[in-house]
Design a protein around this nucleic acid. Structure first.
Lengths: 329, 329
DNA sequence: AGGCTTATACTCAAATTTAGCATAACAAGC
DNA sequence: GCTTGTTATGCTAAATTTGAGTATAAGCCT
């Protein structure tokens, strides 16, 4: 019987339970989207900064901020809760009645991506882990491996399963139709996981070791951190389209091309330059600083800054990217 | 030091911890958006179906489905994780070192909104709890109370605070500019919470009982269930714009006006009829069943059904509502 | 038959987008 | 100092998408 007081009663019949706070901390330069990773696992796999939820933490977000503050000198700007992972088997070795290891993942955006004073922490390029997500230089090479492997996986299934798989592959990767949807990062990762094309999927207990010829390119991570990363990227890619979060990653003053390049780095696609500028302008997202810079190579570029007033003016101020995929240098 | 194995070590220095799974189960008719609530609390406050996470639950979502299956004969269709609430003070009486009571909230959509065989469970109209969210009949009366109360709250603050508050009120409620953004449900609720215009905000320890003349209209709920509801509504309102989730709430066959009315019920605004139809058509969201119904009153209406193929065809198939707010009956 | 109600087809102007072309302003090499 | 390369920025024509109607169809009710 459902009961509002069940949270109280659950204290009694409580199951073994632990909760971690994990942070996907992101930064960006005009050519590189970055994530802060730590290397600390026995198996030499990369991970994300995280720590157990503790009684001192008044709120979850404060707990996360405390961990990050303690571990790095990074100043988190924007922080948002991403997702709670808690499947019972997420620990590397799933002992049958191990109980749940919850992990509450957060997305955090920071401005400076300096090497971080953290011992084992490094800024890494997103696409080291998910290389198929970067279409800026055209169709990523990773797909040369993934695409046939997925086709094999589709064929593996029986008649009924087959069409279902086919549809999902098409929906997420758009291999036939060429319809790449930048935000479906998580769906793509999960598809690769199900198709057992990422090593994480093979780590789980059960299944002995079916001979598996090829895996998708891209570095793996410990636990389900790569899934968290995929979740974070997908969320961020979606969000820049209707919220001006991109400015959380930009320095105070920047040129329009730097802004565009940063958006491209995050979304993984190229944009039409003139239209991008018009978009920024009509949305009123940026304002002049009065200065210019010659550091860009050619004609000096104006330096602009984020125009905060836009928050009040527009219901959904953001950079809803046009469908463009043209290179247009 | 951040460590991938911290989830392991957390088992040792573990804090008192419990985790509940809560469900915001939604259904809709063409005039009413509904949520399944339970009444079981000593204080006679409404709540949401929920139950503690248990070892048997292999995944969080399976745990949630198990609870719902056990408590109702409802068949959940679409299920998605919403948010994890875990602020230390969320229990009604916050004992200082009580530890965290996590609550992982899910949004679930069901088709039939029949009275539900559940003992204390009832289908309720969303807007019983959040009356200011319904603009279908024009500006909701609730704002006659809320609006001046918020203005008072804005004035309460000192100079620096004041402008900040003013901006937030304007951003979320758009009282001056008339710019109502249907999705900002949670932001509005949280603003009312901070302004102490909802009783939940007064329940917390601390603050004795500042004389508080008026509260926002709308029924309260136990714990932070009303916040969960607001989260769910905001998410759903956002999602119908780019994913065809609305069809999870519709019967198999329906008329276009029924579809429109349902969307209006959820989003809380009126839409332009002809344009809505054009949208459904150009997006390819519906297909003919060949049948018609005369039950609608006037000229018989075609019955249509959801066209599944759209999922593969379009990157973001949904009903991105035009800005329209006209009544247009 | 006449009036009421809802359904559906079409229209039209305004606004937005897409995709370019053209020009400006600097740096480096000759 | 002139040419070339590079980036910045202005402007525009065509195609599409919106916003807001008008007109007509097809049932029911009296």
């Amino acid at each position: 019987m459902p009961s509002v007081s069940s949270s109280r009663s659950s204290a009694r019949k409580q199951t073994p339970l632990s909760a971690d706070l994990s942070a996907v901390i992101m930064a960006a330069t005009p050519d590189e989207p970055r994530v802060l990773t730590v290397r600390a696992t026995p198996q030499h796999l990369d991970g994300l900064p995280s720590g157990p939820l503790q009684s001192e933490h008044r709120t979850l977000e404060m707990g996360l901020r405390a961990w990050v503050a303690q571990q790095t000198e990074l100043k988190l700007g924007y922080v948002e809760q991403l997702y709670t992972f808690g499947d019972r088997d997420r620990a590397e070795v799933a002992s049958p009645k191990a109980g749940h290891a919850l992990s509450i993942a957060y997305l955090a955006l920071v401005r400076e991506a300096r090497p971080a004073g953290l011992a084992h922490a490094t800024w890494r390029n997103w696409y080291d882990y998910l290389p198929w997500e970067d279409w800026r230089e055209g169709r990523p090479k990773a797909l040369d491996v993934i695409s046939p492997a997925l086709r094999t996986w589709v064929r593996e299934g029986g008649k009924p399963l087959r069409q279902f798989r086919e549809e999902r592959v098409e929906l997420t990767f758009g291999l036939e139709s060429g319809a790449w949807t930048d935000e479906r990062v998580l769906e793509r990762y999960e598809l690769l996981f199900e198709a057992r094309l990422v090593p994480e999927a093979l780590r789980e207990g059960g299944q002995p070791s079916t001979p598996r010829p090829k895996l998708a390119p891209g570095q793996s991570m410990a636990l389900d951190y790569r899934r968290m990363l995929a979740t974070a990227i997908g969320r961020l890619r979606g969000k820049i389209k209707y919220r001006p979060v991109i400015f959380e990653l930009m320095p105070n003053a920047f040129t329009l091309l730097e802004l565009q390049r940063t958006v491209e780095a995050l979304s993984g696609v190229r944009l039409h330059k003139q239209n991008f500028r018009r978009l920024v302008e009509t949305q009123g997202l940026a304002e002049e600083t009065g200065q210019t810079t010659t550091e860009t190579g050619g004609r000096p570029a104006r330096l602009v800054r984020f125009r905060r007033e836009v928050l009040v003016e527009r219901p959904a101020p953001g950079l809803r990217l046009p469908g463009t995929r043209r290179t247009d240098l």
